[in-house]
Amino acid sequence: MKIKKQNKHLYWNPYYGGFLLGILIIFTFYITGRGLGASGAMKSSVVAIVNSAAPEHAESSAYYSKFLDDTKSPMNNWLVFETLGVLIGALISGGISGRIGWRTQHSPKITRRRRLIFAFSGGILFGLGAQIARGCTSGAALSGMAVLSSGGFITMLAIFGTAYLFAYFFRKNWI
């Protein structure tokens, strides 16, 4: 039976997930006055890595030096802790529904290698874009939309608009 086979993918109803996510955003704003984020932690990691590998370079660079503080490590950051929480939370959820396991998910039409290459290049682009726009889908678009930020709405439209425009070229990877 197909249903048995698909059982591993039984996810929450998207409206239910969205409702809970909305409540969480309200809660986050109520407690901390700011929204959620994800790419900030990766930026902090990069800054920390560069800072430990080449401190002089990090000190002199116009971008890294913004996030360097003599009194504390760049990893001592709200978003880094939040990201740790995300990892724990996802692990719990995946553990409950039995989704944990080393695997590469890709369309049967493409090879694993191709999937990884595209994932890597997609990651580079997303990292670059998230730095230019000062936030990713969670930090800029989702949290921005919750407070009606113009920048958040523009970022959201730009992300989804271009993604739809370019979806055609990447269709082999997914369908």
Partner: peptide, 13 residues
């Protein structure tokens, strides 16, 4: 100049 008592929340990503 005394700083504002309210700490402005910082940015996201």
């Amino acid at each position: 100049t005394v700083k504002k008592k309210k700490k402005a929340p910082e940015g996201g990503c």
